[in-house]
Design a protein around this nucleic acid. Structure first.
Lengths: 212, 212
DNA sequence: GTGTGTGAAAGTATTCACAGCC
DNA sequence: GGCTGTGAATACTTTCACACAC
C-alpha cells in the first residue's frame, strides 16, 4: 500500500506547484478588493493558458460559474483545501546560518499555516541564540525532539558535507518530508517526500539559455 | 527571429536542469578518483534511469565509448560546454538582506564560473558595507552600473513589494536573465529569461503530498 | 560480454474546441 | 454574449529494446 490517497495520485505532478501560484495571485486579487475572476484574467496574471487553469481545477471539483467565472473567496478556500493548507504543519529548520535565518524570518511562512517549531545547529556558538524560530537547539537533540513533537517538514540549510547525514537522521526518526537547500543531490530511503532547491542548478539553467 | 540558437531550442526543457545534476555528481565522482562511469552507475547516484541520461546526452553529441562507459573528465568538460559554463557569467544581487548575503557567500558560485560583480540595496544603512560581493551599492545606481558593465544574470532577493519594479528596471536596462527569490509571481516583458525560486510553493507542494 | 546511441512505444502534460449553462 | 468543464487532439517526456561498437 504505497500511496494511500487515491485522490492525490490522480493529480498530475505538474499541477501541484501551479495551484500554489494560483493561490498566491488570488490572494493578491482579493487584497485589491476584486470578488470575481475568470480563468482568462487569472491566466493573464500568472502567465499561463486559461485552459490550463480550468483543467488543473477540474481534478478537484467544479468551483466556477459558467458565464461568470470564479468567486475569489470561494476559490481561495477550495485551493487551500486542495493543497492541504486547511490545517497547519509543523516545520523545523536545521542549519541556522544566513540562509536558515533568512527562511525562518520569512513572514509568509506562518501566514500560510506553517509553524516553525524548532531550529537546530551543530555549532556551540549559536545554540541558545534566537534566529527567528526560538532558541536554536543542538543537532544532538534532533531525534529526541522529533520523538516528542510531530514534525511534518524538515528544511535543510546545513553545509553540503553534512546534509545527507542530517537527512538520513530526520527521515530515520520519522519526519515524512524534507526540503533540501544544501547543494547536493540528496536521496531518502524511507518513503519520505524530498524536494530540492538548488541555486547552482538554477544558475546553470539560465546559463544554458543565455547567448554565448 | 525570436530564438537565434538552433541547437538550444531542440533540447527539451526538462533535460537542462538534469544536465547540471549530472555535472555535480560527476564532479563528486571525479573527486573520489574514479575515471570512468557508465550511465547505469551515474543513474544510480542521481536517482534516474540510465536511458534518460543517454538520451539527454544524445542531444549534444556522442560522448561515451560503447562497452565501456564515459570518461569522467571528458564528460565534465562536455557538460560544462553544453551548459554554457565554458566561459564566465557576470551576476549581480539586488537585496542584501539575509538571503542575498547567504547567496553571495555561497562558495560554489565562483567555482562554477559565476562572477558576482555587484550587490545592491535600497537601504542607506547597508550601502557601502560588504555582504560578500564587494561594497553594497545604492539601487539608484542600478541603471548606470548595467550601462557600464555587462550583467548576464540579476538575482532578486528584495522584499516582495518592490521585486517586480526592480525586475522591470534591470530588464529594461538590458539584463537578459533574472533569478527571482522574492515571493511573487513575477513577469518580464522583454525577451528576458526569468526563473523563480519560491519557498512558499515548495512548502505547499510538500503539504499536498503529506497525509492529513 | 558490456554498455552506448537511438528509433519506436508508452506514458504525461498541455492546448484546442465546443457543448452546456449563466 | 461570456465563461466553465471536459473529451479529443496535440505536444512533450520518459522508457523500452535492440543494433552496433568495444
Amino acid at each position: 500500500m504505497p500511496q494511500s490517497n487515491h485522490r492525490k495520485s490522480s493529480v498530475p505532478a505538474a499541477t501541484v506547484p501551479r495551484l500554489s501560484q494560483y493561490l498566491r495571485k488570488l490572494q493578491e486579487i482579493q487584497n485589491r478588493g476584486t470578488t470575481t475572476v475568470s480563468s482568462r484574467q487569472l491566466a493573464g496574471e500568472v502567465g499561463t493558458n486559461p485552459a490550463q487553469i480550468r483543467k488543473d481545477l477540474s481534478y478537484f471539483g467544479e468551483f466556477g460559474i459558467r458565464g461568470v467565472g470564479y468567486d475569489v473567496d470561494r476559490l481561495i478556500t477550495e485551493l487551500r483545501k486542495c493543497l492541504g493548507l486547511d490545517h497547519s504543519w509543523n516545520v523545523i529548520i536545521i542549519g541556522s546560518g544566513k540562509l536558515g535565518t533568512a527562511l525562518a524570518r520569512y513572514r509568509g511562512f506562518q501566514k500560510q499555516g506553517f509553524n516553525l517549531i524548532g531550529m537546530f545547529d551543530s555549532s556551540r556558538k549559536v545554540v541558545g541564540k534566537n534566529r527567528g524560530g526560538g532558541p536554536v537547539m543542538s543537532t544532538e537533540k534532533l531525534e529526541p525532539f522529533i520523538e516528542k513533537n510531530r514534525v511534518d517538514i524538515a528544511i535543510i540549510t546545513t553545509p553540503a558535507a553534512v546534509a545527507q547525514m542530517i537527512i538520513d537522521r530526520v527521515v530515520g526518526a520519522g519526519v515524512p518530508s524534507v526540503l533540501n537547500f544544501a547543494p547536493i543531490r540528496a536521496h531518502a530511503d524511507k518513503p519520505a517526500i524530498l524536494r530540492q532547491v538548488d541555486l547552482s542548478t538554477e544558475l546553470m539553467t539560465l546559463s544554458f539559455y543565455l547567448d554565448d
